[in-house]
Structure formats: C-alpha cells, structure tokens
C-alpha cells in the first residue's frame, strides 16, 4: 500500500516537475528553450550515479554478509541505473545539438566516460546471465559492480581533470548549491526535477527489488524440484538417474547447456 502511494506521488511529482520545466521557467538568454532539457538530463545523470553507487555498496554487503537480499538490491539498482544513464545520454544529445551544434563528440571526456559507464553496467547485467548458481552469480556481479564503480568519480570529475565541450559539474561544491548564480526559477526547476526523479527512482527500486526476490524464489523452487526429482530417481531400484537432473560438482544443478550435453 505504501509503495502504491509512493508510486502515485512519484507520478504526480514527475508530471508537475515536467510541466514546470516546460512552461513555468522562462527560456534561457543564451541557450533558449534547449535549456529546459537540462532539468531531466541532470536529474537522470544524478540517479545514474546513485544507482551504481547503491549497486557497489550492495555488492560489498553481499561479499561481507552473504545475504542474497543484497544481491537483489544490486541487480535492481544496476538495471535502473542503466535506464537512467541511457536517458541522461539521450537528454544530453538533445540539448547538445542545438547548443553545441553536434549530438555527440567522442573527444569529450564526460561523454566518453559516460558511454563507458553504460557499457560497463550493460556488461554487469549480461554477466549475471552467465551463471545459474545464485551465490556464484552474486559474487561475480559484486566484484564487477565494484570495479565498474571506479568509473563514477571519473565521469563526475572528468570535466575538471580534462578539457572538453562539457561544462563543469552542476553540483561541484556545497557553497555553489547554497548560493546558486542562476535565477531562482531555474534552480527550483532543477531541484524539483531532482526530487521528482528521486521519488520515481525509489519506487522503481522497490518494485525491481521485489521482482528480483520473486525471480530468486522461483529459481530456488525450480532447483529444489529438480533436486527432489534427482533424489527420487536415484532412490528407485534399478532406475538410472536421469542425466538431465544430475547434481553439479558444487551441489547445484548444472546450467541448461551442461544439462543438454549430458542428455545427448
């Protein structure tokens, strides 16, 4: 029930923030209407950082506590992070074309490291599909999630460390946040979009976590069923165990490919 209320609140907040960004804020003196794209673009980028940060912390949680709930949070956050990274890149491109004159420039460190971030976490999600054993999968994913998280500060500080087209970070120092140089409506639009997107992110994370838990429960039920069938087949006098339900060396059910080879 609380999650539903959160979902409705997030939906209303995103609609309100979008309407304010589109109609409530005047066009920028230099950038014109293109400036309006900055609000969802910056909010998406912030949530991409947050998502991958949560994935890394959850990975540490799994490695220390060996509790699969941490892994469920990690995969939920990674998938949502990939979505927000892709949306941030899209928003950036739609802003860049009218303001910079190009959609994309590979020489720009912020753009390139962000594309790398997207590729790293797509790889993270693909890696998870390689193993059927939840513990092994969680460990591999946690390590990759931690390694990939190194790119987060590189993306953020790339505009300071190297020269490029991209402007300096929107959130650089607390002083700049508390004393913004931009007019108040612009700041309100940005803060409003950040708040609305963060609400939406929270709701998405809860739902994706629930999905990860449901998928894990089903996976365990299927594995449990296969183990029971294998035990029953072994216990039957004179009946050879079905190779398709052989228990793996590590006590787990072998992946489908290995099962297919065993049945051949």
């Amino acid at each position: 029930m609380t999650t539903r209320i959160l979902g409705v609140a997030a939906l209303l907040a995103v609609i309100a923030a979008a309407l304010f960004g589109l109609y409530g804020v005047p066009a920028d003196l230099n950038q014109g209407d293109a400036q309006r794209i900055m609000y969802p673009h910056v909010a998406s980028a912030w949530l991409a950082y947050l998502s991958f940060g949560v994935t890394a912390l959850s990975g540490i949680g799994w490695l220390i506590r060996r509790d699969l709930r941490f892994d469920a949070v990690a995969v939920a956050s990674a998938e949502i992070g990939v979505l927000f990274t892709a949306l941030a890149i899209w928003g950036g491109m739609m802003w860049a074309r009218p303001v910079w004159g190009v959609f994309w420039q590979w020489e720009d460190p912020r753009l390139t490291t962000t594309a790398l971030l997207l590729a790293l976490y797509l790889g993270y999600l693909l890696l998870r599909r390689l193993s059927d054993d939840p513990a092994r999968r969680a460990t591999r994913a946690a390590v990759v999630g931690l390694v990939a998280a190194v790119d987060i500060p590189i993306v953020h500080f790339s505009v300071i460390w190297w020269r490029g087209l991209h402007q300096p970070p929107t959130f650089l120092s607390p002083d700049k946040i508390l004393n913004p140089s931009a007019p108040l409506p612009f700041v309100l639009a940005l803060v409003g979009m950040l708040g609305a997107f963060t609400l939406a992110w929270t709701w998405l994370l809860i739902r994706r976590y629930q999905l990860a838990r449901a998928e894990l429960a089903r996976e365990e039920a299927v594995r449990g069923g296969l183990v029971r069938r294998a035990s029953a087949a072994k216990a039957r006098p004179g009946a050879a165990a079905n190779p398709g339900t052989t228990i793996g060396d590590d006590g787990g059910i072998p992946p489908p490919k290995a099962q297919a080879e065993a049945t051949r």
Partner: peptide
C-alpha cells in the same frame, strides 16, 4: 529541427522511457 523539437524529443523519450520501463516492470512483477 527547432529548439522546441529537441525539447519535445528530449522530454518525450525521457518521460516516455520511464513510463514504459515502469509499466514493463509491473508486468514482469
């Protein structure tokens, strides 16, 4: 394309993408 066209494309894909992902997530759940 005018600036407004890019604004519409930007907001449309970002908000639409969020909506589609949310709907698919509920369906998967």
């Amino acid at each position: 394309m005018s600036d407004v066209g890019f604004v519409i494309a930007g907001y449309g894909v970002i908000l639409g993408g969020l909506a589609v992902y949310a709907a698919l997530l509920l369906l998967r759940l």
